[in-house]
Simulated scan of single mutants.
Amino acid sequence: MELTHRTIDTGEIRMHVADRGEGFPVVFCHGFPHTWFMWHRQLDAVAAAGYRALAPDLRGYGRTEAPANVEAYTNAAVIGDLMALLDDIGAEQAAFVGLDFGAQLVWELTLRAPERVAAAIVLNNPFAPRPPRAPSAFWTKAAERHFLHLSYFQTPGIADAELAADPRGFLARVYYSLSGDYHYLDTWKNPPGLGYLDVLPQASALPWSWLSEAEFDTLVQDFERTGFTGGLNWYRNLDRNWELTAAYADAKVEVPTFFLYGQNDPDMEGFSGRDPLATLRANVLDLREVVEVPAAGHLVQLERPDAVNAFLLDALKSLDLRA
């Protein structure tokens, strides 16, 4: 079950994939600012249980190509990359695991290509129906009152330069702020017009109880080489994703679905509506399990790997998947 690294041609880009184990494929989709390595503890556990665990660097990240065109980072385009990955390994279906932008990607995948999804296993970012207005209509108003990263990230070049100037410092501060060790929504106490590093808290010195210095160094190395523009371009397509999903405005998720969230996750608290679990249950027709992880934040797969791994393996076992 040695971890291997390879690159596939998706037809649009060359995508790096970390690949471990044999059996039914389980594909892990990361968020911002992450790489495939955010899932390394889950790859070990899932492969050891008899599955093929695959974690791509999604387009714009890590060792995967980063197109120069901002419009190249839509969910539809990245779903095309994931379908090419399944075709490359000769699989009709996979179980897809997602967090953050990876969660949004998995949700949209269940609508665009449900026949390729054996199960959706989502962490922290619940499904919600397509809103009646573009996302910017909501965040622009909020950003008039306080700092909001969704708005700050929209203009190409500004956040890119700020974050690339100190990748190590930014990553330490943003990972710490998103964890259960800090209340991320305190960043909203800052006025508009500031940079992201102006509003993020200082992180305590590494190692942390849930992240070693060596693991952090691995994450930093990729961003020191690539910068953050590829990941930021995902934010710059939020309205475009909304435009491209008009046909799914009233769609429900019908594939087998499992949802886990951290008790202190900022997306559940501040970005997912007033009652995210009720919305999830109303729109996901085959929702099989909902699990809360006490005291965990947004990076739950690192903060509480034992709980997340047990959740993943129980979900996969319940599906009785066959290679």
Rank of each mutant, 00 (worst) to 15 (best):
A246C: 02
A296L: 04
D306C: 01
P191M: 01
D166E: 05
L82A: 09
V284G: 05
K189L: 14
E71F: 09
P129S: 06
L287E: 04
F223A: 08
E269M: 12
L123K: 03
A18Y: 00
A49I: 08
A113F: 10
Y176V: 00
T229I: 02
S212M: 11
D239Q: 01
N283I: 04
D100I: 10
D275I: 05
P56E: 05
R41Y: 02
F147H: 02
G80N: 09
A120I: 08
V253A: 06
S151D: 13
G102Y: 02
A95P: 10
M83S: 13
L238S: 12
S272T: 11
R304M: 06
S177V: 10
D81L: 03
A119W: 05
G23A: 11
N69T: 14
A128Y: 07
Y152H: 10
G227W: 03
V293W: 04
A307I: 06
D166C: 02
Y51Q: 15
V255E: 02
Y235K: 05
R145K: 15
T10I: 05
F223L: 07
L150I: 02
T257D: 01
Y184L: 00
N264D: 06
T187E: 04
G230S: 02
A113H: 13
W139S: 14
L171N: 08
W188N: 12
A66S: 15
A249Q: 13
L211N: 03
Y196M: 15
P114W: 10
A164Q: 04
K189M: 09
Y248G: 00
F37D: 07
A251P: 07
E144C: 07
